[in-house]
Structure formats: structure tokens, C-alpha cells
């Protein structure tokens, strides 16, 4: 069952025929991604799942131009991302990296960080921006004054999320956000992401090898294997009735963590 956008106007991100080739240290060209095309819509979560080495992280890094593809195009709301100012693009397409890096200082200082990179005044602790981001990521106001580096992995990932959301992005990218988290924390994050996605009409694109997280969040599921889309569909249906042999094998195999 292919994934159909609710309506063309809801399409936020279009990936069209993307290919990524990297030169290995031995000097050979290695194809990491080949012929990748998909769309991501407003208020929907697109989850890219696949074994390690399938090219998931390579793919998501192209969407906010941490890297550029060797061929193919990516469009944000109808415009090629190459035409946009890269700094502007990264404000509209926020990204949460795998390991939450906390800058020195309090949680509040971390939330204010994105504003330091612009000419705008950072919002104060009692400002509506901080309150909104903290609420979305379920950070209590007491947590704002704490030293960010002393927080647990799950708490840091929530700060990471709030920090990405404070600038009101249109697209949120997440690269393996639960790789360092236990199961209850992962479930909490899944619930948070679902709420944020609907409440903010955010287009979420998430890369994970965590089936449970995919199951709880994916509207649109993409299975990536060896740099190609092996199967794509509506999240719940695809997990219940996998069509390709490759995806069935992945679901049954040890690579898929069900924790």
C-alpha cells in the first residue's frame, strides 16, 4: 500500500532521485544512496528505517544540507534547497542529532543558543518562546535552571528537542534519537513527537533502527536497504503486512531492535 499525501499542498519536503557517492580512503567510489525519492508532509511523521549501513544517516544529513547529494534534488515547500541560504534553510529545517550535545551552562542557556547565532535577542526564562518549547518537549520549568551536562540521557534528548523547536521550524529531522535511551524513555519521546507533529503541523522526518519507535510514530514508513528504498507505505499497515522479502527479513532479524 503506497503512501499518498493527504493533499499536494501538504507536501513540505520532496526528495527526488537522490544519489550519494563518497570516495573511500582507498580511492574507490562507494554508492551510499541510489535513486531515493519520497515526500514528507505537514503534520505527518515520515520514518526511515533500515539496518545499520543502509544509508539512513547519510540520507537525513542531506535534508538540511549538512552534506550535499552527488545527484538529484531536494525541495522545501516547492523550492530547491540549493537556492535557499543554507543558514535560513537550517532554521526552517531543524535537526536533532543522534548524540545530544549540550553546550556548557544551564538548560535555559542551551535553549537560548540558536538565538546567539542570529542577530535577535535571546528570549528570557519567562518568555512565551521558552515556555512553549519547554512545554512541547515536556521540560519542567524547574529544569531550566539546571546544568545541562548533568542531565540524564533522556532529559538531554528532551532539551535537544526543545532547542530544535524553539525557532519554530517547519520540518524536524531526527537522526536515531533513541539510540542512547531505554524503553520507557523511548516511549515517552514517541508520544512527545506525535503531539508536537500534530500541534505544530510539523513535517517530521526520522531515521531509526528502533522498530518500536517507528511503530509508535510513523505515518509514512520507508524501509531502506543498501542505499535504496526497498519498501514504502503507511506505517501501521506496512509493519503488519510487509510485502518485500527484504523488509520481512529485517522485521524478523536481530538487526531490528524491538526493545
Amino acid at each position: 500500500m503506497p503512501f499518498h499525501p493527504p493533499d499536494r499542498s501538504q507536501v513540505m519536503l520532496t526528495v527526488d532521485g537522490v544519489r550519494a557517492v563518497r570516495r573511500s580512503p582507498e580511492g574507490n567510489d562507494v554508492t551510499l544512496l541510489d535513486g531515493i525519492s519520497f515526500i514528507a508532509c505537514r503534520a505527518r511523521a515520515t520514518v526511515i528505517i533500515g539496518p545499520s549501513g543502509s544509508g539512513k544517516s547519510t540520507l537525513i544529513r542531506l535534508l538540511n544540507r549538512l552534506d550535499d547529494p552527488s545527484a538529484g534534488s531536494i525541495f522545501l515547500d516547492g523550492r530547491s534547497i540549493l537556492e535557499l541560504d543554507p543558514l535560513e534553510l537550517r532554521r526552517r529545517v531543524a535537526m536533532v542529532l543522534q548524540k545530544p550535545f549540550m553546550f556548557e551552562g544551564t538548560v535555559l542557556a542551551n535553549l537560548q543558543r540558536p538565538f546567539l547565532y542570529r542577530t535577535t535577542e535571546p528570549p528570557a526564562a519567562d518568555s512565551p518562546e521558552v515556555a512553549r518549547a519547554a512545554e512541547l518537549a515536556r521540560l519542567s520549568s524547574a529544569m531550566l535552571a539546571r546544568d545541562a551536562r548533568s542531565l540524564s540521557g533522556g532529559e538531554q534528548q528532551r532539551v535537544n528537542l526543545a532547542r530544535a523547536l524553539i525557532g519554530r521550524p517547519e520540518v524536524l529531522l531526527l537522526d536515531e534519537p533513541t539510540s542512547a535511551l531505554d524503553r520507557p524513555t523511548t516511549d515517552q519521546l514517541a508520544a512527545t513527537l506525535n503531539d508536537v507533529c500534530r500541534a505544530e503541523r510539523l513535517a517530521i522526518v526520522m531515521v531509526t533502527h528502533d522498530l518500536r519507535l517507528a511503530e509508535h510514530t510513523a505515518d509514512h514508513l520507508i524501509y531502506l536497504e543498501q542505499g535504496k528504498i526497498a519498501e514504502e507505505g503507511v506505517g501501521a499497515e506496512m509493519l503488519a503486512r510487509p510485502e518485500s522479502a527484504a523488509f520481512r527479513q529485517f522485521l524478523a532479524g536481530p538487526a531490528a531492535s524491538k526493545e
Binding site: N64, L66, L87, R90, R91, A94, M95, V96, L97, K99, F101, F103, R113, P114, L116, Y117, R118, R163, A164, G167
Partner: peptide, 16 residues
């Protein structure tokens, strides 16, 4: 690397 890419993701330019 992680710190730099985190900053880039938050909208920093190369200098910042």
C-alpha cells in the same frame, strides 16, 4: 565535530 555540527544544525555559520 559533534559540537560544531550541533551548532550548524541550530543555524550557526562556520565562524560561529
Amino acid at each position: 565535530r559533534e559540537e560544531i555540527e550541533t551548532a550548524i544544525c541550530l543555524g550557526a555559520n562556520a565562524r560561529q
